[in-house]
């Protein structure tokens, strides 16, 4: 054995020794569950008992893909897919607001640190708290949103902000609430990006008399590309993970119209006790994320090479 020991063999042993406890936990709670969810999606486990067999083993009449076949005919599933797409499309609104705030508040001033702290603060609130606050905010009859819209005349005095009761718009109410803390997060990332910009390019442009909008659009934004890539990634992951705030504000309602894949999966699993079916839904969510992440990495990798 001695002959196999290179200069790093001691380091190798120590490395695995140090890694062992947390790697064990990580395998148990993160890596194994991914595979096990795949397996469960072929079963109809009801949450009781430790023995779980695939559908086609229990009942030879059935296909092992029965859960997936059923999904295709499940209207609620398609509503959840549609809402997941809405989250993907409209949650990035937070990134736009975050960028605007970063540009607006990247200034020197006595008040700036205080203002920044206030703007950042929603980020540390639990989404349960954010959801609770925004639920009243958007309430009909007495919500602040309705009050303000009436004050500025955008809504007649008898009108109502019924957004959270609407099958068509409730999802957008939830997304709006979720954007509030997320915009603060995007602002932090963009501020970090702004403070890393190369000053000489900006100075040169200023001396050349470039206008404010030209400066932002043609010089600052392209130079913020690294920050934008990070913001895009965290925004995309955040929209795929949406859960807490939906459960708190609507619990998927009214009539299932605000479910996304991540909450519909929970509802089927822990409220209808269809663990196998819930597993199939989470696999769809997982594959969707995986596809998007791979295309994101491919696209950004491509451009980085081209530069």
């Amino acid at each position: 054995m001695l002959s196999q020991q290179g200069p790093f063999s001691h380091q190798r042993r120590v490395a695995w020794l140090f890694l062992a406890p947390s790697l064990f936990l990580y395998t148990l709670y993160v890596l194994f569950p991914i595979l096990f969810t795949f397996y469960l999606s072929f079963t109809d486990w009801d949450g009781l008992g430790s023995e779980v067999l695939p559908l086609c083993v229990v009942d030879p009449e059935l296909s092992c893909f029965e859960n997936y076949r059923e999904l295709m005919d499940d209207e609620q599933f398609w509503v959840s897919v549609k809402n997941t797409v809405y989250w993907l499309l409209f949650y990035p609104l937070a990134a736009v607001v975050g960028l605007a705030f970063a540009l607006l508040f990247h200034v020197k001033g006595v008040l700036t640190p205080f203002y920044k702290s206030l703007l950042f603060s929603p980020m540390v609130l639990s989404l349960v708290v954010v959801g609770t606050i925004w639920s009243w905010f958007l309430q009909p009859h007495f919500g602040l949103a309705e009050f303000l819209l009436k004050q500025v005349g955008l809504l007649d005095p008898e009108g109502q902000v019924g957004i959270m009761a609407s099958f068509d718009y409730a999802t957008f109410g939830v997304i709006l609430a979720a954007c509030w803390p997320h915009a603060a997060y995007c602002m932090v990332l963009y501020l970090a990006g702004l403070s890393n910009l190369q000053q000489n390019v900006i100075e040169a442009a200023r001396i050349d008399g470039v206008s404010r909008w030209q400066m932002i659009w043609h010089i600052v934004l392209p130079m913020l590309r690294p920050a934008t890539l990070i913001v895009a990634l965290v925004t995309f992951i955040g929209s795929m993970r949406a859960f807490d705030i939906i459960m708190v504000m609507t619990a998927g309602g009214p009539a299932g119209s605000t479910h996304v894949l991540g909450t519909y999966m929970y509802e089927q699993t822990f409220q209808s006790f269809r663990y196998g079916y819930g597993a199939a839904i989470s696999i769809v969510l997982f594959l969707l994320s995986l596809g998007l992440i791979v295309s994101y990495l491919a696209a950004t990798g491509e451009k980085n090479r081209a530069r």
């Binding site: 569950p33 096990f36 469960l40 430790s50 929970y266 989470s282 997982f286 994320s289 992440i293």
Partner: peptide
């Protein structure tokens, strides 16, 4: 592990802790 939608872990984590 940082990138995945954590809903995929829900059922197995429940299974592990309860069973």
């Amino acid at each position: 592990g940082m990138l995945l939608p954590f809903q995929i872990l829900l059922i197995p984590v429940f299974y592990l802790s309860s069973q």
